Computed example of a mutant assay.
Amino acid sequence: MTLTPDTSPLSAIEARVLGTLMEKARTVPDSYPLSLNTLLLGCNQKSSRDPIMELMEADVATALASLKERNLVRESSGSRVTRFEHNFQRGVGVPEQSAVLLGLLMLRGPQTAGELRLNTERWYKFADISSVEGFLEELQDCSIEKGGPLVVKLNRAPGAREQRWAHLLCGPVDESHLVTGTVLRSVDFSTQDRIERLESEVATLRATVNKLCAELGIDPATPEQ
């Protein structure tokens, strides 16, 4: 089964489930295929995820049922606990390099070619950024007969030097939402940096005051009369 214009887009939860299975198959092969509980933990982990989700077991189970119907996920046999594995490459009909890029985009959201090359290190080692861009362009130029484009190159965000890429497995991308999110995250990081610097300065000043008080024989906790 190949995704086509007639195929309904993946939901955000289905994309998270599928991307997590693709990630764990490459990064923790000894624990793969995954049980439902392990898959849930992977979907909800705080690192290497954008956006961060707090899914319930029922959410993941529903997504798995839908993905199995699309032939993108399979149940594995030979275990007392039901385990699941992805069938993305064959299901979508793309080479390994393209599958890796789509998997990372599903898990981490829009990224530049440079970020994708760095983030795919544990999945697949691309020779250089040009090779990443080459596979992205192939995914963007997929003909309608082969299912249509699977990624899109976004407009350059305000203040950004490079354009980011996003997957289209969940349908068209709302760039205005992405730009807003990027700005808000930048503000959050900037505020956090200022807070950390202020806390450091306060700690330094407190240490200096304590040292002076000790030299003068004054208790810093005792208010001046």
Rank of each mutant, 00 (worst) to 15 (best):
P5L: 11
T7V: 08
S8W: 05
P9R: 01
P9M: 02
L10P: 03
L10A: 07
S11W: 04
S11G: 14
S11P: 02
S11V: 05
S11L: 05
I13A: 04
I13R: 07
E14S: 12
E14W: 09
E14R: 07
A15L: 03
A15K: 02
A15F: 03
R16L: 05
V17N: 00
L18R: 03
L18H: 03
G19I: 06
G19V: 07
G19K: 06
G19M: 07
G19F: 08
T20K: 03
T20C: 09
T20Q: 09
L21R: 01
L21T: 02
M22T: 03
M22H: 00
M22N: 07
E23I: 02
A25S: 12
A25M: 08
R26E: 10
T27L: 06
T27R: 11
T27K: 11
V28E: 11
V28N: 08
V28G: 01
P29H: 09
P29T: 03
D30T: 10
D30A: 15
Y32L: 06
Y32A: 02
P33R: 02
P33F: 05
L34A: 09
S35N: 01
T38E: 11
L39R: 08
L40A: 04
L41E: 12
L41A: 12
L41I: 00
G42I: 08
C43W: 02
C43H: 04
Q45H: 11
Q45P: 02
S48G: 10
S48D: 15
S48R: 15
S48V: 09
R49E: 12
R49P: 13
R49N: 15
D50L: 14
D50F: 12
D50I: 09
D50M: 14
D50H: 14
P51K: 12
P51Q: 09
M53N: 12
M53A: 13
E54M: 11
E54D: 11
L55Y: 11
L55C: 13
M56N: 13
M56P: 00
M56Q: 15
M56I: 04
M56G: 15
E57Y: 10
E57A: 06
A58K: 14
A58G: 08
A58C: 07
A58S: 14
A58P: 02
D59W: 09
D59R: 11
D59H: 15
